[in-house]
């Protein structure tokens, strides 16, 4: 079980994180999720990501650990960027390796769902209309809660 969590301003390389897990033993299935800033050409959107860093580090580690235990993973890597991000910029990477595809898919979804409601990050949208903080979504809350019953 290899957990790797990074929070920072730098961009990340999917390949680099993928290559880091490929050599590992039980890694027949790898699932990667990348979240990016949506491309609203007309609005010239940028996102500003704020973070309570030391708490976020702990929360992401805990989520990764829970995922390892519940989905029998050989590796989990979570990268979350902070700061000002332009259109199409990468925001978040979740990459998991497992012996089987079902557990790899479920683990990656679990991590994203719980991250969305538990990890202390906040997004502010700036575009041609001005600035606003993103509101938390009920659908995210539901997506996160379903794991209580699944696990």
């Amino acid at each position: 079980m290899m957990i790797h969590v990074v929070i920072g301003e730098e961009d990340f390389s999917l390949t680099e994180h993928y290559e880091a897990v490929r050599g590992l033993g039980d890694c027949g299935a790898v699932v990667a999720f990348v979240g990016q800033v949506r491309d609203d050409d007309d609005l010239a959107t940028t996102l500003t990501l704020e973070c309570y860093v030391p708490m976020a580090q702990q929360v992401l580690h805990n989520i990764a650990q829970q995922a390892c235990v519940n989905f029998d993973l050989s590796a989990v890597r979570i990268v979350h960027r902070v700061g000002v991000l332009a259109q199409n910029a990468q925001i978040v990477l979740v990459l998991v390796a497992s012996g089987h595809r079902k557990s790899a898919f479920e683990a990656a979804q679990f991590i994203m769902d719980v991250l969305k409601t538990e990890a202390p990050f906040w997004k502010k949208i700036s575009n041609a209309h001005g600035e606003r903080w993103v509101e938390a979504k009920d659908t995210d809350e539901q997506a996160s809660k379903r794991w209580q019953y699944v696990l």
Partner: peptide
């Protein structure tokens, strides 16, 4: 102690 709005990362 930290006080914050509901989180919206990811």
């Amino acid at each position: 102690v930290a006080i914050f709005p509901p989180v919206t990362g990811g």
